[in-house]
Design a protein around this nucleic acid. Structure first.
Lengths: 183, 183
DNA sequence: CTCGGCGGAGAACGACCGTTCTCACAGCAT
DNA sequence: ATGCTGTGAGAACGGTCGTTCTCCGCCGAG
């Protein structure tokens, strides 16, 4: 098993465990068991748990945004593409192991205690905001609306996680459509 | 120090510490030090950390909702009172030690691992939803809007926490006003 | 005053966690 | 065959955590 595969297996296992149970509830030995990578290799690739967590968050950020962008780009420009974001949220919320936004969860758990985690979360949310701003501008709407549309998405993530139902995405889409209907 | 005062000091100290640093990051000994209540008394009032956490969440739920209701009731009936919710959020977000919604944070940290915590969070969010539904009905708007208004509030809480700024409440208020303007 | 129970301070316990170390072994150049 | 390098399995280490126990002083009842 070469370095690249060890990294991939580690990130896959760690990300899944952290997301499913929370970061502090998962020990490094469980990451080793789930990944099949020895502790020695683990620590020479990621010298501390904190760095492993950061690496997971960064990879998740890239994947999450890529998945969203890929989905949205399959829709026509304009308002349709803005609303596609909420359709994608619905699909995401419907995944059987959905447990909320990993960044919101990580921030609540470690944001006050690990500034690097807090920075990663802010970067992720900032990038999402910027992406939405691009979609809204392309739809010819004022920048005023962007913030509200982002709040709807964020609210849908936490509400879907807590309620255990993807319906919040539908509700958010309705609200967004209404906001975009009357300029 | 009688039983009632010991309970109050424990809950005050524990709630503040859990909220500020996260639950798992705070040890029982720190609760003892901050409250001035001995470990022995602590454990005879709350036989486990989990029960102390639950008691904190329940008291916080009651206080949070009471504070919100008190604020809203000082405004005239109708749409004004619905919008007052977001004004109150702005004040809350502006408190110097604001660190997001304790229930969202607790859910992210322990929701997957402690079902009692998950239940308490669901109860809190359900009560907030019902309260908003009452305000919206009193304002003569359809129940359709309630979900969206709640999403705006939830999104504002997480966004304010992560960004460190209370502006999200302003943004949420703008969105809510727009939703309530055109029925 | 004496006794008994309660409370406080903090040590003790067992479990676990992040991290490092030991040791045996596999692959490879010489 | 002989070293050398790096690996895997897992023990070991130091620290912390939740929880319990010990010991001692206080205080009210008799």
């Amino acid at each position: 098993m070469d370095r690249a595969e060890a990294e991939a297996r580690l990130l896959d296992a760690a990300e899944a465990l952290f997301y499913e149970r929370g970061i502090q509830a998962v020990g490094m030995d469980q990451v080793r068991a789930a990944s099949g990578v020895s502790l020695k290799r683990l620590y020479q690739l990621y010298p501390s748990k904190s760095e492993l967590v950061l690496a997971c968050l960064e990879r998740r950020d890239r994947r999450w945004r890529a998945r969203l962008a890929e989905y949205a780009q399959s829709r026509p420009d304009g308002v349709e593409r803005v609303l596609a974001v909420y359709d994608w949220l619905y699909e995401w919320f419907s995944e059987p192991d959905f447990r909320g936004c990993a960044f919101i969860n990580s921030f609540g758990e470690l944001g006050a205690v690990d500034p690097a985690v807090a920075d990663a979360v802010r970067a992720h949310k900032g990038a999402f905001h910027d992406y939405m701003a691009g979609l809204v501008a392309a739809a010819g709407h004022s920048g005023q609306t962007v913030g509200t549309l982002v709040l709807l998405a964020e609210g849908a993530m936490t509400t879907a996680a807590i309620s255990g139902s993807p319906e919040a995405a539908r509700q958010a889409r309705l609200g967004a459509a209404q906001l975009l209907a009357n300029r």
